[in-house]
Amino acid sequence: MRQSVVRFAVALLLAGSFPSLSRAQIYELDAMHTSVNFRVSHLGLSWTFGRFNDVSGAFRIDPADAGKCAFQVAIKTESIDTGNTKRDDHLRSPDFFNVKQFPLLSFKSTAVEAVKEGYAVTGDLTMHGATKAVKFVLVGGRKAEFPKGIRRTGYTTELVLKRSEFEMDKMKEAIGDDVHITISFEGIEKAH
């Protein structure tokens, strides 16, 4: 229920932000085909992999004018999953994500440019209460109708964040500061 409220609010916000653009397409993230995965160094020896299981959001694609594209994503930090309950509990604690204080990790684009592979997106990432500008390239943009009547598109990107820049700076000796993130998502076009 809460999820759908958040999704609806996000979609509405995006739609309301660009009411006059008829050629733009608004998509809602398809949670089933969206994944936010990350890996972080453990003792400098290996990578620990994890993901967030509750991701929602929406985006707007304007094929004619990339500057009018927009992306917005919200991730529930509580949904972190590294395949180990005890570790997940610790990652939820104030030593890391502090999910009781910062239940959402969010991204909102501020500028989008067309590039050869797709879109170069700049935006504000809010994590652990701190907001920083990040930039990444979204690769993809192919479209498909699946199942029949449901139009969708998808993108993938990779980026590296320093968690300490978001004031998540505990235990950097053991657990790497650089967090490698891979995001892949599909969106379902909303009917006009």
Partner: peptide, 26 residues
Amino acid sequence: NQQRKPRGAGKLPSSLRCRFAEGENA
């Protein structure tokens, strides 16, 4: 993996640097 040395750690004597052990908990 190129693990960066934590900022500020070098300013303290090695015996007093914060050492955390990470496992199922820390």
